[in-house]
Amino acid sequence: MSFAGSFRQLVGGLFVGLLLVNVGTVLADDAREHLIGSKAYTEEACVEPTADMRKNHMEYLFHQRDITLREGVRTKQHSLAECVACHVKKDDAGELANINGDGQFCQSCHNFASVSIDCFQCHAAVPREPKHRHKLGTSQMKQYHGDHANKMTPEGVNSSFALWETMGEQQ
């Protein structure tokens, strides 16, 4: 464990202590209310027990980012892209809202805890694929992405992900 890691853990731990007490009271009435409108609402459980995710999601993400980038491990259970795909919601205008936007999934808690998120300076805050991917002309692309690729709706995105998954299994 690097010094930075321990430092993060210490700071994270302090905040989480505070957070758990307060989030508990805030979400006591309906802990799932804030998920309405996202795919997460229709799921029975998150990728880890909810209490564990509230406390340790950044540890999972830090671990995942290192093994994905440096080793090429592409498991999806703790992938940030999957978090975004499942928790993203549409705004009033019907567009997908940035997940770190005000009142959205990440920010509702992070605002409350006064912890800034660094992820979305670089990472896409809504599921987004290249604009013209389907035009690239390879049979593979047409077959698996087709017209879903450039649809900016949760359904389009999810079906696109689903197709991607099928593609993985077929290999």
Partner: peptide
């Protein structure tokens, strides 16, 4: 510069 509209599989930023 500050970037927006990154694609999911390719994070990149200022």
């Amino acid at each position: 510069e500050v970037l927006e509209n990154q694609v999911t599989h390719q994070p990149r930023g200022k």
